[in-house]
Nucleic acid binder design. Structure first.
Lengths: 229, 229
DNA sequence: GTGAAATGTTTTGGGAATCAAACACTACGC
DNA sequence: GCGTAGTGTTTGATTCCCAAAACATTTCAC
């Protein structure tokens, strides 16, 4: 009936219940509480709410069983979880415990396309074993090298991504024009269009649009920001 | 002072405020509300709470500015966001709009190691351009192929991952032994140990442990489940 | 300057998730 | 059978997030 998106907590409950109902003990309140690290009283309230939403059959002090619809949803969540953890451990080489908690958080935020591509990348690396070995070697040797917060020249900024100007290492008449247009450290900037041959590029800054050569753009250092223009 | 982890909502507010304070308009209540898709009244309340936590300077009807500490935190969130979006678009080939919203959700659930490995994988593919081309080709041709919810033979199940038995296509005395030990459709199963040469493997099911040949394990279909044993 | 339009805030109320503590039920040993 | 230990539920309160509507302030056109 209702197609409303489940809250991430609801997804967690369904996933846990599915998991536990496959054990000999079945899904018991206390076990659910342990698994989700909450108090039994919280689980009790949650079960009542889930029952009201038609997601499970349950009477106080009785057994918990998912409805077919809820089971389908729970299988889906579990599938996302497994696919993510697999990617994190097998491709990125994240230790199992860390991968488990990250997958647990991300499983509510991902999309089918992302999961599909992750699986595809896994297959791809599997098909190119010499490559895979090289990747595993690289991953093993590089430790704590880079932190996020990308900085680059303006010429490397992808189209439509916002960035903040860090510095402008340009001289002569162009510098004057840039400053007049507001291209100064701290200004928000984006690349709007790149000519077919990659040069010149159209840039938007403070509501103005201006055009510059790629070589000039390379002298402008920027730091990438979230948000498209 | 306080080292408490920020809630994901708090992180969202800080990130948005940082972003907006780099525009000529500055960070205004209404703009924050638009960006986060909430009502202005909600933003008003949130700003008061953030001010109480010492994360920003703000007087009613006045301008919002982050404290240096909050700015650092916001930069960090923004960096995670950028790194994730970059991975999603450049490596996985996710369209920008979808990558943006997925990154927005995942940025609160990731860890430094995961981000580092994603960046490293980007570098790696950049260094192997023929490979990268092959990957992009594969990604372009495979559309909507696989959904999550991994099924495989028991022999392909990684050590320590739980799975549910789907079917047992084994005949003869081994079948009898498997059924007696509880290896039947629906049972929860896991691989406990793999001998040095990959054969035989030790399996745990319903609290029992048993050993079988890899070839036999291949006839047992399983569906992967979240959770380590 | 002044008043209407735009913008921002407060008040009020509600839903979701949580916990602690008091209370109810079940199951098992004897 | 019966009582107690273990398990599950209810109650009452808190915190967070959100919205609608009433109210306040600022801004800008004239």
């Amino acid at each position: 009936m209702k197609v409303e998106r489940l809250s991430s907590k609801t997804e967690d409950y369904l996933e846990t219940i599915l998991q536990l109902s496959e054990t000999p003990r079945g899904a018991r309140t206390g076990d659910i509480a342990d698994a989700l690290k909450v108090q039994p009283s919280t689980v009790s309230a949650a079960l009542k709410s889930l029952k009201d939403q038609g997601l499970l059959h349950y009477e106080p002090y009785g057994a918990v069983t998912l409805t077919p619809e809820a089971r389908r949803l729970a299988e889906d969540v579990a599938g996302r979880h497994v696919a993510l953890r697999r990617f994190l451990t097998e491709i990125l080489g994240i230790p199992p415990e860390e991968a488990e908690v990250v997958a647990c958080g991300m499983e509510h935020e991902t999309t089918p396309l992302v999961l599909e591509r992750m699986a595809l990348l896994g297959d791809f690396l599997k098909d190119h074993s010499q490559l895979r070995t090289a990747w595993e070697a690289k991953r093993a040797t590089a430790r704590g090298l880079r932190a996020p917060g990308v900085e680059s020249g303006l010429d490397e900024l992808p189209k439509g991504i916002r960035a903040v100007v860090l510095s402008v290492d340009v001289q002569g008449p162009l510098r004057k024009r840039l400053v007049e247009m507001g291209v100064t450290p701290g200004a928000l900037i984006a690349v709007e269009r790149v000519a077919p041959l990659g040069d010149p590029i159209a840039v938007e800054v403070r509501g103005y649009r201006l055009s510059m050569r790629k070589a000039e753009a390379a002298r402008i250092r920027v730091k990438w920001r979230p948000g498209l223009i």
